[in-house]
Amino acid sequence: MTPVRAAVVDHGAGNLVSVRAALEAAGAVVTIASRPSGLAGVSLIVVPGVGASRPAMARLRRSGLDDAIRASLDDGAWYLGICLGLQLLFERSEEDGAELLGLLGGTVRPIVGAPRLPHIGWNAIERRRRHSLLEGIPDGAAAYFVHSFVGVPDDPSVVLAQTEHGGRFPSVVASGRLLGTQFHPERSGSRGLRLLANAVALAGA
């Protein structure tokens, strides 16, 4: 079996070193894509990131990576969004009014009612639905979060898992070949590495 080729999209606000190392540990051959050509022939597009959506979207548009991501998805690639990369899948953000990729119906909203923001640290992911992305990861496993906003899909059935901080918010989402985690699997120990390996396996199947 040939190894899965994954591209980590560089929009200027992600921990590329750790995402790359974790994907490599999960068995992928990884390149960093800061231009559309970087997505040629990859079967898994990984969009990492921490922070605000507007500058990240501006950078994706300026580099043409937004259209390149759409084209790759049309060609059968998978998308894994991490934290901000998950939020970018939705239509718009209430954070700064930014228009997002719009690949998934829904809105990015602030966490409300939380005892402390940003939500930083280890917290449990509660399973809502079975999915091969979560295979081998027990219900209630801890994952590492760093964020103040969450993506809320229009269709609640795409939510695979949720997490409580203030209220409950979607922490793992899957819709067709679009996958996303609000936490950082690259920083979530062996459970996170397992999720990345599951994503790599899905993209390679």
Binding site: V17, R187, S188, G189, L193
Partner: peptide
């Protein structure tokens, strides 16, 4: 830092 970060899958 980079050498350590590459081998670590928890926050640094």
């Amino acid at each position: 830092v980079e050498r350590t970060a590459r081998r670590l899958f928890v926050p640094l």
